[in-house]
Design a protein around this nucleic acid. Structure first.
Lengths: 143, 143
DNA sequence: AATATTTTATGATAAAAATCATATTTAAGA
DNA sequence: TCTTAAATATGATTTTTATCATAAAATATT
C-alpha cells in the first residue's frame, strides 16, 4: 500500500511531532533508534522532507530536526505525496491509462468509494492530530 | 497498492473469464496482446495461477488457458493472495509488528474501516461478477 | 510413430527500490 | 578563529521486482 520509505517517513515525522519543537531539536542519530530505521536511510528521507517543507532543520552543533507549528498542522498526506508521489493511492488499480469515472475498470466501480475515503481522511487529519492520538494513549508506535 | 504482477494477473484472468471456456481455450500468445502485457511475463504469471488453481490449462495443440465454472466463481482476492501474498492489503500500514486492534498505530484507527471494506469487497465479488460487469457495459478494460 | 503446438520449468537479465557510506557545508561555542 | 557537531549532497551497493529467453514435457493430429 505504502512504500517502505513513506512508512519510515511517517514514523519519523510523528516521532518529531511528539518529541521535538523549535527549542528541542532531534539529531538523526537520536531518531533512528526509537523508530527502528537504519540511520543512513532515515537521514536521506529527512533531507527530502526538509526540502519539501514537511519538517524543519538547522545544521551545526545544537542543530537537528524538528517540527514547527506550520509543519505540525499539515495533513498527513503531504508526507506520502512527497515520498511516494501523488498517484500511489489514487491511480487506477489496474494501471489502465483510460480508467475514468465515465469509463471505469471493473475494480474501480467496486473499490473507488473506499479508496476515496482513505485519501480524504489522509487529507483531513493533520500530523498533529495523529500525534495527539498517541499522546492520549489512543494509538501506539511500538517497533 | 497492487504489484504490477497482480494487476497483470487480474487483467489476464478477466480476459479469460470473458473469452474462454472448456471448449475455447486461449494461448499465451493470444492473451498477451489484448491485455497489453509482455508475452514472456504473462506466461510466467499464468503458470503460477494454474498451479494455484485460479485458472485452468491444457498443453499441446488445441491447448491453452481457460476458466472452468469453479474458477469463475472464485473471489477476486484469490488472485491477489497468490501473486502478492495475503499480507499486502492487510498488514499494518506502518509495518509495525505489534500493531493490533487493541494496540493500533495512528493510521490504523483512521483507515482500518476503509481497508477492511476493500478486502471484504474483494472477497465478496467473484471473477464472474467482474466479468459480467464488463459484458454488461458497466465496466471497461481498455489498454 | 512422427511432428507440431502448446504449457511448464528454470533461470538469466534489467530496472527499481531499499540500504549504506562519506565528503562537504553550516553554525555554535570555546 | 578554531574545533566540533550537526545537516546536506552525492553516489555506491544490495536486494527486490519486473522482464526476457529457452529447453523440456505433454498432447493432439497425421
Amino acid at each position: 500500500m505504502l512504500s517502505n520509505s513513506s512508512k519510515y517517513a511517517i514514523k519519523a515525522v510523528l516521532y518529531l511531532a511528539i518529541n521535538s519543537n523549535e527549542e528541542k531539536k532531534v539529531t538523526v542519530k537520536d531518531i533512528s533508534t526509537p523508530i527502528n530505521v537504519p540511520q543512513a536511510y532515515i537521514a536521506k528521507l529527512l533531507q527530502e522532507l526538509v526540502k519539501a517543507d514537511i519538517i524543519s532543520s538547522t545544521r551545526g552543533p545544537k542543530g537537528g530536526f524538528y517540527l514547527n507549528e506550520v509543519n505540525k498542522n499539515q495533513p498527513v498526506i503531504n508526507i506520502l505525496n512527497v515520498i511516494d508521489g501523488e498517484k500511489r493511492l489514487t491511480s487506477c488499480m489496474l494501471s489502465l491509462e483510460k480508467c475514468k469515472e465515465e469509463k471505469p475498470c471493473p475494480l474501480h466501480n467496486i473499490l473507488s468509494p473506499s479508496r476515496k475515503k482513505i485519501t480524504h481522511l489522509l487529507h483531513l487529519k493533520s500530523i498533529k492530530d495523529l500525534a495527539t492520538e498517541v499522546q492520549l494513549g489512543n494509538a501506539f508506535l511500538p517497533l
